[in-house]
Simulated scan of single mutants.
Amino acid sequence: MTDSRHGLPTRRAVAAGALGLMAAQAAQAAARGERLVYVGTQADKDGQGVFAARLDTATGKLAPIGVVAPLQRPTWLVAHPALPVLYALSETGYGPREQGKIHALKADPATGALTVISTVASGGGGPAHMSLDGEAGGLLVAHYGTGHVAALPVRADGGLEPPALVQANQGSGPSPQQQGPHAHAVMVDPTGRHALVADLGADRVFVHPYDAATRTLGPASEASVALPPGTGPRHMALHPTGRHLYLLSEIKPEIRAYRLRDGRPELLQTLRAGGEPPINGAEVAVSHDGRFVYASIRVEHVVVVYEVDEARGELREIQRIATGGKTPWSFALDPTGRWLLAANQGSGAVTVLGRNNASGRLAATGETMAVDRPTCVAFPAWG
């Protein structure tokens, strides 16, 4: 199939061809029992950047590959679901009228090597988080530094165009960290028509209309929800059914369960996730089967495990376990569900916790891999 205007392959045709190649490469890796994993870092030193490794899914052991993209402060990574492309933000642009950068990187699934396809301005200062829309035609970026939310078009080859539209939200809170808006996470809801933004500075979950065809965002709507002053919402995770949203806050370490109705979050439950501030929440994720939710608490250096009530979507804490490192900035479950990899920024290590798929509980393995100031973990589907 070609684009009739230019005689070029369509996005769907390119993706289909790439999927066939990746399926063969992934099958070879699976036969070896290995998964490619990328680690984002806060490293500023020369020779540092995006780190790669291979996880043995049978034993949980990590084999480091090393730095595969020497970028400045690549603190958040996202893998394209159909193309061998990894997106990395550079958490920079905190000066006046400065912007951060977003890099699109072509991956070699056989070696983990990355090469730059394109680099564009992020649309605001201090980008902290990004995610792809359901069609993978747009990349959304949340900016902690300036509070902006940007939508960037994704090309057929996986490269990026400059932001199609940028929205600025307003708000503040009582904490010294809340002098203005600080967008800390962004994702498109299951309908594909709304972008949800957790804003730490404004104590809000902003809801923006989103047009996937044009990659444009409308101003925040009345569906936006306010949290108690001084909460500091940080990261969010969707349940696989699309009916529930889980929100972890940073300043007050709390986790909230919401029911989603056409992009509008309706609060179901609030649970304390840690002790008193400055103990702060960091990352939240839902297991692939939707039965468990995991949250990392940085100052306590733990991951908290919650069981999900299948009917109501509410949570019940069942475990609290040390990560084996300090300051777990983020973490990820591997595609088999057998392992949780924690990026311990404070101790410079990625640690591996074993996971029981039936009970959801975690166990220490003692497996650790040195990485300079790790902040996030990404498992590409094509790895």
Rank of each mutant, 00 (worst) to 15 (best):
P9E: 13
L19G: 11
L19R: 15
M22G: 15
A24L: 15
A24I: 14
A26T: 11
V37R: 00
V39Y: 01
T41E: 05
T41W: 06
Q42H: 15
K45D: 15
V50L: 03
A52I: 08
A53F: 00
A63V: 13
A63P: 03
G66N: 13
A69T: 06
Q72D: 09
P74M: 04
L86P: 03
G95C: 12
P96Y: 06
E98C: 06
K101G: 08
P109D: 12
A113W: 04
A113H: 11
V120Q: 13
G123E: 04
D133M: 05
D133V: 08
A142F: 06
H143A: 10
Y144L: 10
G147H: 09
A150N: 01
A151Y: 00
D157R: 09
E161A: 15
P162Q: 09
L165S: 14
Q170W: 06
G171M: 04
G173D: 04
P181C: 08
V188E: 02
D189V: 13
A198M: 15
L200W: 01
L200Y: 01
D203K: 00
P209C: 10
R215W: 06
R215I: 08
A223I: 05
G232A: 09
P233S: 12
Y246S: 07
D262P: 10
Q269W: 08
T270D: 09
L271I: 07
R272K: 15
R272V: 13
A273E: 08
G274P: 00
G275H: 07
I279E: 15
S287V: 05
D289Y: 05
F292G: 01
V293H: 00
S296Y: 02
H301G: 11
V302L: 07
R312S: 15
G313L: 10
L315M: 05
R320T: 08
W329P: 01
S330G: 15
T336R: 00
G337A: 01
L340M: 14
L340D: 01
V350E: 04
T351N: 03
G354I: 03
N356A: 08
L362W: 03
D372M: 11
